[in-house]
Nucleic acid binder design. Structure first.
Lengths: 138, 138
DNA sequence: TTTTGTGCAAAGCGTTTGCAGGCAC
DNA sequence: GTGCCTGCAAACGCTTTGCACAAAA
């Protein structure tokens, strides 16, 4: 908790309970929640927080490069406190979004840059399929 | 044109001028236009076509697997008549979306499947950066 | 005290839906 | 002639905005 406050200060953001709570959810969870989902999670502990605050805070954190935003093809965006570019895997059965930790992406990037005369800043990679759990239950 | 009519018939879709026009735009262009953009392109030749028809048609074509839909982080979705999974490159300066033709993606897919116990159906890969043209003009 | 954030309600915008008339077959 | 498609307008859902009050620095 202390750690999150420091992080916000380090990025010259005012430290508020709302910001800490929202960042904490993103930091602790692996589900890459949407704004709506974060809002619902906070109903218990922060019943007065509005959806607008969730959106404004996510925008602030995004601009401070503390979270990343992405869209896996749904109506709404998802958020992730891990800002390092890393592939995501989306299960088409249960719609969970998983992280893919280890991958030799550097080679891929270099190969593409050489091939295209494009200067690559970052990439978003999504694999769609069926996760291990859902494969079992079929 | 004939070719597009055949394609629609082959997928058991009724052949209408609207469907032909919309698919033709996607087939001819390399810009991966949004629904709005397709609508505007058709104002000249099909002034009575409604935005709703564009959306409904895109949905129909998507379900028939004649086009693919994706979101590169914008407010709206983009569409592509090339349904083969292929990486896209998004220029952060001019916001154009390019295709990346050649890539040894099969290896990547196999590697990820072995690493994760996930059954991969398809993938969406986006590289963000600065395109050759925009690099020149800086 | 100054500055910035929060909460509410309303607006905005891309997309979807319901329905009546029209067209493909 | 039947059933699906189109076009219009209204509705929908996610996200943003304006504003008054509250909290952080």
């Amino acid at each position: 908790m202390q750690h999150i406050a420091e992080l916000l200060k380090a990025h010259k953001l005012k430290v508020t309970p709302q910001r800490i709570a929202i960042f904490k959810i993103l930091y602790d969870s692996k589900e890459h929640p949407s704004a709506e989902h974060i809002y619902k999670c906070l109903q218990e502990t922060h019943p007065t927080m509005s959806l607008a605050t969730v959106y404004k805070t996510l925008d602030t954190l995004k601009k401070a490069e503390l979270v990343q935003e992405f869209n896996v093809g749904e109506d709404s965006f998802r958020y992730d406190a891990n800002i390092k570019a890393h592939p995501h895997m989306i299960c088409l059965e249960c719609h969970k979004v998983f992280d893919l930790a280890t991958m030799k992406l550097e080679n891929l990037k270099k190969y593409v840059e050489e091939d295209t005369d494009f200067e690559i800043m970052y990439e978003k990679i999504f694999f769609y399929g069926v996760c291990a759990d859902c494969k079992k239950n079929k």
